[in-house]
Design a protein around this nucleic acid. Structure first.
Lengths: 226, 226
DNA sequence: ATTCTTTCATGAACGCGTTCAAAAATATCT
DNA sequence: AGATATTTTTGAACGCGTTCATGAAAGAAT
């Protein structure tokens, strides 16, 4: 991120670097765009970028964070239009894919270290907790609003699970090379329906043992997280 | 891999490089061990390693391939001892974890690009198909041998699903920092039981619509694969 | 206005993975 | 054996991300 104490001048330079970087990332991919290219395009010296960003990947991270902020109103709007858990789940994720679409190749740089939570630039890491919590709050919201009765034990876990599902869809989308990422769209539609059904069923008495097992699994996986 | 036409001499040099690399990877991690270090430790020039391996990561890949080959008899032995789908599933994966244990940090280098099937060094990529198929055959084997009736539509898909589950466990294990990776062990035990239960239930008539949906999801995900 | 301090900018230099032209070692042929 | 092709080895060089000593700009303090 841009330094804490930023004069307007510095703020502007930081933005110039970010924009130059994104443009190059989009045009020739993350790896091919060199820091020297980026700095030159931004009209600064090679080392200047490192005054604003600790690493090349941090630029992508900044983009990711800004994107998430920009998306908030779009998400709110989409949830106004859509009805029901299935529709809202689908549209919430669809909004994200649509927003990221022009920068699909850029985001792929995040996927690279996405699996390792210890890596600073991971959607699962500590450094992205703020974004994650905001995201998860949306899922909590649509779960509450949809009116489906959710058992007390599952309720606190479910938003996180849906967020995880969303991440899975985004990852799949990033590697999906079908035309217009059509496979991802079909996956999203079918999975949203299936998940909604499962959530409905999860409250039923005969499902109790299965649900308890699932909860235990979630506990193990999320063990040692705030 | 070592070149196609390998004289005994070259074979030996290749092995020296592999062993030097693994030793350094284990001692100081994949990133800290430089190719110059590796070459020096192997007693060759810096560039020599590139005659035997196209890249640094390719060394890890070679290790992965060799490990999988070495594991075959261990897997066979483990499946002799264990009974039932749950036990065999658990032990099959446990053997792998045990075998990889001394080189956990080495394997993490594979995890890095593991998500992207287009990357040559990915467990999901085309280049590792052979290994994958052998692995999947084991899962098919224990499914057939366990005697649980599996519906005809699910049967061809299930081995791949179990393989995918195994990959998930391994990934989790690689990032699991709990003492002795105890969380992974608990996850494996509980998940093996749960999966076995689910497979048992999947054949029941009321499960039909859910199973059909799951199958559709699998079809979308595996679309365009041999 | 003058110092002093903090912020911002520079480009050379470092360490790394990787490539490459060239040489050495080895195999193959006559 | 010598001549020739092939495989193996070399270490310098390249391009990259990143770091760093150095200096310029911009405020703050006197």
């Amino acid at each position: 991120m841009t330094p804490a104490k930023a004069t307007p001048k510095a703020e502007e330079t930081g933005l110039k670097i970010l924009e130059a970087a994104l443009e190059l990332f989009r045009k020739e991919g993350f790896d091919s765009a060199t820091m020297r290219d980026i700095a030159q395009k931004a009209g600064v010296a090679t080392g200047a970028a490192y005054y604003y960003y600790p690493s090349k990947e941090a630029i992508v991270m900044d983009f990711y964070e800004r994107s998430c902020a920009e998306m908030q109103p779009k998400i709110a709007a989409a949830l106004e239009e859509a009805r029901g858990l299935e529709g809202r789940l689908r549209e919430l994720i669809r909004v994200k894919l649509a927003h990221f679409a022009p920068n699909r190749s850029v985001l792929r740089a995040l996927l690279r270290n996405g699996a390792d939570p210890k890596h600073p630039l991971s959607p699962f890491g500590a450094q992205t907790k703020e974004i994650r919590d905001i995201d998860i709050a949306w899922f909590r919201r649509i779960l509450v609003d949809c009116g489906i009765r959710i058992s007390r034990d599952l309720e606190p876990r479910l938003p996180g699970v849906l967020w995880f599902f969303q991440m899975g869809v985004i990852f799949f989308w990033l590697i999906d090379e079908s035309p217009h990422q059509g496979r991802t769209i079909r996956l999203l539609e079918l999975a949203s329906k299936a998940i909604t059904t499962l959530i409905r069923l999860s409250g039923l008495p005969p499902m109790r043992p299965l649900r308890k097992t699932a909860l235990q699994l979630m506990e193990i996986v999320t063990e040692g997280r705030s």
